[in-house]
């Protein structure tokens, strides 16, 4: 069975201009969805970290589960060539420690990089401040990175996936993660109930 038609970019001739139009459209839908979720408002997103409204977790996890299952099944039916998909490289300690630092920043901002754009473009001045801070942060990183080179590339494992490292069947892992997500969604609902009761 030789089907494989995607990623379209690598298997058909697509002009760069068309790709950019597509990027714009994808972004418009993404921004629209984020705003509809309430994520243009830091006051809504931050409730995740006070356990009163776990929307952020629900959206993030259901999106990942959908993306994960879709990618798996499309590759299973040989429509999508998974080897041509970009897999984010793993840098063990930079990503764990950097992730914690990112979490600190997230709680200070109440927004993440993508949602700060939605906030700013719906008139929220704090969103604009986050965007400004991010530009400063990138400049600071650019100026300091050469001296931290050793640490930034420490514990690099390459483009490794969870099923490769666990030596596990890809399909089975997606099934187990989906199951785990369903349990999480149930727990998260209970947590919200409890913390909202506490407040009222």
């Amino acid at each position: 069975m030789e089907l494989i038609i995607a990623p379209i970019r690598f298997n058909y001739e697509v002009s760069n201009g068309l790709l950019l139009v597509f990027a714009l459209l994808t972004g418009i839908f993404f921004g629209f969805f984020l705003e509809k979720a309430g994520f243009g408002n830091a006051g809504v997103l931050i409730k995740q970290f006070y356990l009163t409204d776990m929307r952020m977790f629900k959206v993030l996890f259901s999106a990942i589960i959908t993306g994960m299952l879709g990618t798996f099944w499309l590759s299973y039916f040989k429509i999508l060539d998974i080897t041509q998909i970009y897999i984010n490289g793993t840098y063990l300690w930079p990503q764990i420690l950097g992730g914690i630092l990112f979490g600190f920043g997230f709680v200070l901002c109440g927004l993440c990089p993508g949602t700060s754009c939605v906030a700013a473009f719906t008139g929220k001045l704090d969103g604009l401040a986050v965007m400004g801070g991010m530009i400063a942060g990138i400049i600071i990183f650019g100026e300091t990175a050469p001296s931290m080179d050793k640490y930034l590339n420490f514990s690099s494992l390459g483009d490794v996936s969870i099923y490769e490292i666990l030596n596990m069947n890809y399909g089975l892992l997606t099934f187990l993660i989906a199951l785990f997500a369903l349990v999480c969604f149930w727990i998260v609902g209970k947590v919200e109930e409890r913390f909202n009761k506490k407040l009222s």
Binding site: T71, I87, L101, F102, C112, V130, G137, I138
Partner: peptide, 26 residues
């Protein structure tokens, strides 16, 4: 917070969208 978050996202090679959402899916 924006400074911290962008700096951290450069260290981790991605943010909530590029790393957690997209990388999480694969």
């Amino acid at each position: 917070g924006g400074i911290l978050m962008a700096f951290a996202a450069k260290v981790t090679r991605g943010c909530t969208s590029g790393l957690a959402l997209s990388g999480g899916s694969v």
